[in-house]
């Protein structure tokens, strides 16, 4: 290689590996900043629900709970809708419907989180409060999840906005996965006398199942780390309660709420430790999702 070629090559290589370096630095910096809190509280930090900056008692359990509950609601609501839209667009819709409809769903992914938050706070939450929560309380009120004050904002509201936000993620990856299912399997199913739905069930959904799992996990990953919309809709009160109407707090929303105004170095460190947990969980979830999808595409 000529020396100019070498120089160029090493420059690019350095910058490319710099991306890995960035990721590593991120882990180290966040870990280092969490050290004080982790040393002070140990693993108790993750199973303790108290969060009191006056007495400097910090535990992340309430936020972990809020994150899990809202993400779970989001996935529960988003998965059927995402799969329906992905199947309909890929397998059933004529092109003149599939194109615009696909475009609208993709554009959902382009809307900034803060706009979801704004819309959620002023439009979705009042709608839930006035129309959805009374219905849930009337018909399912015997369940502990649907009791208590109907305010619109809260775990349910945050879960619903998250569901809308992760639909494009799950739908677009599912569409990719469905596309990788060979056409001849669909024809084999139809050739056996399957109805269209039966064909989708045995030749598409069942074959693409693991890839769809990957898409769902990726959607979950997005829901876990989503900050602004959740912060605006969750009510921001760290508590562990059954009722989905109640306010909560997630790992991401506590950071948005308190990070800039942390009172003490222990408070800041504790917040960072919450961020560390969020970081690690999202790395694990995303690695898992990519592995699942990669494996599925290798099999088919």
């Amino acid at each position: 290689m000529r020396s100019s070629d070498k120089l160029f090559y090493y420059l690019l290589k350095t910058l490319a590996w710099g991306v890995v370096g960035l990721l590593a630095a991120m882990v180290l910096v966040v870990l280092w900043m969490s050290w004080e809190a982790l040393g002070h509280f140990g693993l108790r930090f993750f199973v303790d629900a108290s969060w009191d900056s006056w007495r400097e008692e910090f535990g992340a359990l309430a936020f972990i709970y809020g994150t899990l509950v809202t993400s779970f609601i989001a996935v529960l609501l988003a998965v059927p809708v995402s799969l329906a839209v992905a199947l309909y667009l890929n397998e059933l819709a004529p092109p003149w419907i599939a194109r615009p409809l696909g475009f609208f769903v993709e554009m959902l992914a382009a809307i900034p989180s803060i706009v979801y938050g704004l819309w959620g706070l002023f439009v979705l939450a009042p709608f839930l409060r006035d129309h959805v929560q009374p219905l849930l309380a009337t018909y399912l009120g015997f369940l502990p999840f649907f009791q208590g004050p109907q305010m619109g904002v809260g775990l349910l509201g945050a879960g619903v906005i998250l569901a809308i936000m992760i639909i494009p993620t799950i739908a677009s990856i599912s569409r990719e996965v469905f596309k990788s299912v060979p056409e001849s399997l669909r024809e084999a199913a139809l050739g056996l006398g399957a109805t269209r739905w039966e064909m989708l069930r045995i030749a598409v959904l069942r074959v693409a199942l693991s890839g769809v799992m990957g898409a769902v996990v990726l959607g979950l990953g997005r829901a876990l780390g989503e900050t602004m919309a959740v912060t605006m809709l969750i009510g921001n009160r760290p508590q562990i309660v059954w009722s989905l109407f109640e306010s909560g707090q997630t790992m991401a929303s506590i950071l948005a709420n308190q990070y800039a105004e942390a009172d003490s170095s222990l408070h800041l460190s504790a917040l960072t430790a919450v961020g560390l947990a969020l970081f690690v969980v999202s790395l694990v979830i995303n690695s898992l999702a990519r592995w699942i999808i990669w494996r599925m595409q290798r099999v088919v």
């Binding site: 991120m26 966040v30 900050t227 950071l255 948005a256 961020g275 970081f279 999202s282």
Partner: peptide, 11 residues
């Protein structure tokens, strides 16, 4: 790409 953006803020 998939790191939550709030974590980038902490970094």
């Amino acid at each position: 790409t998939s790191v939550p953006s709030i974590v980038v803020g902490i970094f």
